[in-house]
């Protein structure tokens, strides 16, 4: 206590000086508009820079939440997008609806085999059934194959067993997408007759003539093609939009009219 008093007495000049400076600055700040705005600028700069540092640091702690939020937001957008497709494609044969999209995270993925499987963290309990279509934010990924209570496996587009109905976006020429098991970035578009005109860079989307996907979900673009086949069809290489080596969030499309169409076919 004594030492505190001593130090106050010793530094009394400094203390008085600082106190009077404070009083004077206060006087300046309150009376002069120039100084008011000057101090205001300094204040804004300090508070702005400190809070931006704080939010920069803080954002790292909220990344998980932020991520989930973005996934939810994506889901909403997908829903809106699907509605949009329904309206624009009313004349199409596959007038199907996506009633619901379910988001899921990839927990296993492979691209180096020729029958690649992806496993996700959603299953029967989350409303997933067999043969649902799976997409990423960039395009088609695959189809649900097996389900357990909490997990599902997906036949990836990079699986030689899978064939997906596809069309050329510009000309609506119908073909089918499959994979030859070689390059995980390239799939093959078959059954496009030589009579149709194609060029490198054309976009390929789902055709809608299957139970899996509605029309218009992007698959990829034409990378290369060969028209020397004797069978009368192009052999086309398609560069896929989805990057299968870094899949993390997927969306499962639930179509309500599948059962109806199936029952019609069975009759």
């Amino acid at each position: 206590m004594q030492s505190i008093i001593n130090s106050i007495v010793k530094n009394r000049n400094l203390i008085i000086y600082l106190f009077l400076s404070f009083v004077t600055f206060n006087y300046l700040y309150n009376n002069s508009s120039v100084h008011y705005s000057g101090f205001g600028k300094v204040g804004t700069f300090i508070s702005g820079s400190t809070s931006s540092i704080y939010s920069y640091i803080n954002s790292y702690f909220n990344l998980r939440q932020e991520n989930n939020k973005l996934i939810e937001e994506n889901l909403e957008l997908k829903k809106i997008e699907s509605q949009f497709f329904d309206i624009s494609d009313t004349k199409d044969i596959s007038n199907s609806k996506i009633d619901k999209t379910i988001s899921a995270k990839v927990i296993f993925n492979s691209i180096n085999k020729n029958k690649n499987i992806i496993v996700i963290n959603k299953g029967e309990f989350n409303g997933i059934t067999r043969e649902m279509g799976v997409i990423s934010s960039r395009g088609v990924v695959g189809i649900i194959k097996n389900i357990t209570g909490n997990y599902s496996s997906i036949v990836s587009l990079l699986n030689t067993d899978l064939k997906i109905n596809a069309i050329l976006k510009n000309s609506s020429t119908i073909g089918s997408i499959s994979w030859n098991g070689l390059d995980p970035r390239i799939v093959q578009l078959n059954d496009i007759p030589l009579s149709s005109s194609i060029k490198v860079g054309d976009t390929i989307v789902t055709g809608g003539m299957s139970f899996y996907f509605p029309r218009g979900i992007p698959i990829g673009t034409i990378e290369d093609y060969n028209n020397t086949s004797l069978e009368g069809y192009y052999s086309i290489d398609v560069l896929i939009f989805s990057d299968f080596s870094s899949l993390s969030n997927l969306y499962i499309l639930e179509r309500t009219d599948n059962d109806e169409i199936k029952s019609l076919l069975n009759e």
């Binding site: 009394r12 000049n13 008085i16 000086y17 009077l20 400076s21 004077t24 600055f25 006087y27 300046l28 009376n31 002069s32 100084h35």
Partner: peptide, 29 residues
Amino acid sequence: TFLILYGFLVGLIIDLSLQTYGTHTLASI
């Protein structure tokens, strides 16, 4: 110590007379 208070007082008088809102006071102290 008194000099600082003295500076404050004089500065304040000048400031009030010139409408300079504490600039003389701060320079003086």
